[in-house]
């Protein structure tokens, strides 16, 4: 007898497709933020599935800091081609070719090129719904985030004043200038993301897989020397280590981990048998306790 059950991964997929379709149906001008990372890749693939055999009815947008890994830029172009979508690229014109993590420090660089850049891009295009690939399991302050997260006209999040969200009935009502951040992967865990990438054979940036790469050690974190903008100290020579990245961002701010994992299976194996959490590789989270919460109130994703 048929049991009419689907696995948890199929349930998560169905939930995400439902959310993506709701947004396409109810908002005037939605956009999908695309960071080129593995979560973005899953989200883009889900959008493709939500509208097949049709095309994805909204554009993607990448807020570029000009400091992403070079391999990421190549993968961005490939993804646009594969899914037949437009990827809008936004670089904060006020910081373009000037602001960088080495000259201005990680906090200022992220604030200007990422947080401010995102706000500018949203204002410029007048998007009323913005998909993001964040998951609730990533970090404690994210655990309370809604699937539809309301932002005022200054793109701010008020964690104490969120709209109640019941069943799968999402409230899409906004006034002019206000917007909703939408997180279709809210209920996914990191393991789910890897499993799904594997099941659906979704290509991801090769930086996720271990390979010999030139790195230097800064404050106990392994940083890859991705181009000659990386200032080396006197006599410093990049080491060649077999490393991979658990998250991808600006290369000077993204720590590598030493690893032998060259396939998704091996990554998952390492992940399950390891004992440190995913975000530890991100330099920005170390700035202050509860720093993610403060950044989010300010409009960071």
């Amino acid at each position: 007898m048929a049991t009419y059950q689907i696995s948890h991964l199929a349930q998560l997929e169905a939930e995400a497709i439902h959310i993506i379709r709701e947004v396409a149906a109810e908002f005037q001008n939605p956009v999908m933020l695309y960071s080129i990372g593995k979560d973005s890749s899953v989200m883009l693939h889900l959008a493709h599935k939500a509208f097949a055999p049709g095309k994805i009815p909204f554009p993607l947008m990448h807020v570029d800091t000009q400091w992403k890994f070079h391999e990421m830029y190549r993968c961005r172009a490939e993804a646009a081609e594969r899914y037949g979508v437009e990827i809008k690229v936004w670089i904060n014109p006020e910081g373009k070719d000037q602001v960088g993590p080495f000259s201005h420090g990680s906090e200022k660089h992220t604030q200007i090129m990422k947080t401010e850049g995102l706000k500018q891009a949203l204002n410029h295009h007048g998007f009323d719904a913005v998909f993001g690939g964040a998951r609730r399991d990533e970090e404690k302050s994210r655990a309370k985030e809604r699937v539809y997260s309301f932002r005022n006209q200054f793109h701010q999040w008020d964690p104490k004043n969120q709209r109640p969200e019941l069943w799968n009935l999402y409230n899409a009502r906004v006034n002019k200038g206000e917007s909703i951040r939408v997180f279709p992967l809210s209920n996914w865990t990191e393991l789910d993301v890897w499993l799904y990438l594997m099941r659906e054979e979704i290509p991801i940036v090769p930086l996720y897989f271990a390979k010999e790469r030139p790195v230097v050690e800064r404050d106990g974190v392994l940083i890859m020397v991705d181009d000659d903008r990386m200032p080396l100290e006197d006599g410093e020579q990049p080491m060649h280590k077999k490393v991979r990245f658990r998250t991808l961002g600006c290369y000077p701010l993204t720590g590598a981990v030493e690893s032998e994992a060259e396939t998704i299976e091996e990554i998952v194996q390492e992940m399950l048998l390891t004992t440190t959490s995913e975000r530890q590789g991100r330099v920005i989270d170390f700035d202050a306790a509860a720093s993610m919460e403060d950044k989010k109130k300010d409009g960071y994703f």
Partner: peptide, 8 residues
């Protein structure tokens, strides 16, 4: 508020 946790 309502917070969501995941484990398996």
């Amino acid at each position: 508020d309502v917070a969501y946790r995941y484990f398996s």
